[in-house]
């Protein structure tokens, strides 16, 4: 069995997204145990230069997977292009970002390769030489250790879960760069392009304090209380979990999390937020986290600096009056 680890780079406008460096750090840690080689795949129409830079910077051997069909992301082309090359290489692990696109093509790629598939990976441990991958279930309430059974495993790694070590020094030895051209055009999916976000709101990005509401607030009318709490602070803004947007209580521009905004305020007050990994991924960088939730087992308490197990509707008025 080959012990190679492949990292699939994620690009936007032909630029490497930061999550790619997290994947590299993850792959290197994973490789360290059995000194496995780590290689990068950089898919896109013309990624030669980007792949060359990555090889120089990281010292990793890099494959530029190029061709007109890869001009825009598309599950079919991404998967077909990669599966053909990976089926030959038979790597041990394929590391993909747990982003919207990563989640779109990774499971299909695993099926095509007959590989194991483990998504939303936050880390790993080793037992008897075998890697066990850690992920969370039930809104973060339970931690799950999973091992693959197949020779190849597709992993999607949660953004933000695996920190990049100090800006690592430029590699002494540049990695090699190989170009593979993809001829095949997609047959069943036509890409029509990216649609910009509807309304942009800078409030969340600029706020020192974010007061955020989750489903635990119970009812739309209780938002008023959250709003008043936010009003206690200067330079504050209202955020929320995805569920609150889905219920129509607040617009999606307030959503914090993997698919919403990523914020890093000085103070984050999570009100009735369960703490699913999708939400945490968007606020992990907050300097101080205060969590109020009546469920003492809510996952949000795992990352809170100050935890308060109380009912919001009784507790917030007390804070306002204290």
């Amino acid at each position: 069995m080959n012990n190679e680890i492949i990292v699939v780079a994620e690009l936007s406008d032909n630029r490497i997204l930061p999550v790619t460096y997290e994947l590299i750090a993850f792959a290197r840690a994973l490789a360290a145990g059995d000194s496995a080689p780590v290689r990068m795949i950089v898919p896109g129409r013309e990624t030669h230069a980007v792949a060359r830079d990555l090889a120089d910077e990281t010292g990793l051997d890099t494959i530029a997977l190029v061709g007109d069909p890869l001009a825009f992301y598309n599950a079919e082309t991404w998967m077909t292009a990669m599966a053909a090359r990976l089926a030959v290489r038979k790597p041990r692990y394929i590391c993909i970002a747990h982003t919207s696109r990563g989640c779109d093509f990774a499971p299909g790629l695993a099926v095509r390769l007959g590989a194991s598939c483990i998504t939303a990976v936050e880390g790993f441990s080793r037992q008897d030489g075998a890697a066990r991958f850690v992920r969370k279930i039930f809104n973060g309430k339970i931690k799950m250790d999973v091992t693959p059974e197949r020779d190849t495993t597709v992993l999607t790694v949660l953004p933000g879960a695996f920190k990049v070590e100090q800006k690592s020094p430029r590699a002494h030895l540049a990695g090699s760069m190989e170009v593979l051209k993809i001829p095949d055009h997609p047959q069943k999916i036509r890409t029509l392009g990216v649609i910009p976000a509807e309304e942009q709101d800078l409030d969340l990005a600029l706020a020192d304090v974010i007061v955020s509401a989750g489903r635990g607030i119970g009812a739309e009318e209780n938002l008023e209380l959250i709003r008043r709490l936010a009003g206690l602070f200067s330079k504050s803004a209202m955020g929320c979990s995805r569920t609150v947007c889905d219920l129509g209580w607040l617009g999606y521009k307030h959503q914090i999390g993997l698919t919403g905004k990523t914020v890093a305020p000085k103070l984050y007050i999570a009100c009735g937020i369960s703490g699913a990994v999708q939400h945490i991924a968007g606020m992990r960088g907050s300097k101080m986290v205060v969590a109020v939730n009546k469920d003492p087992r809510a996952a949000i308490f795992q990352i809170a600096d100050i935890g308060i197990v109380e009912d919001l509707m009784t507790f917030i008025p007390l804070v306002m009056d204290a």
């Binding site: 795992q302 007390l318 204290a322």
Partner: peptide, 30 residues
């Protein structure tokens, strides 16, 4: 193709504190 080795409840809190007392005391502390 994959096997669950174990499930675990994550440690309740890594660095933070849970405020104790009655609701008013907690509000005052906060």
């Amino acid at each position: 193709r994959e096997r669950i080795q174990s499930l675990e409840e994550p440690a309740p809190m890594k660095t933070g504190v849970i405020l104790s007392g009655n609701p008013s005391e907690k509000a005052e502390k906060l």
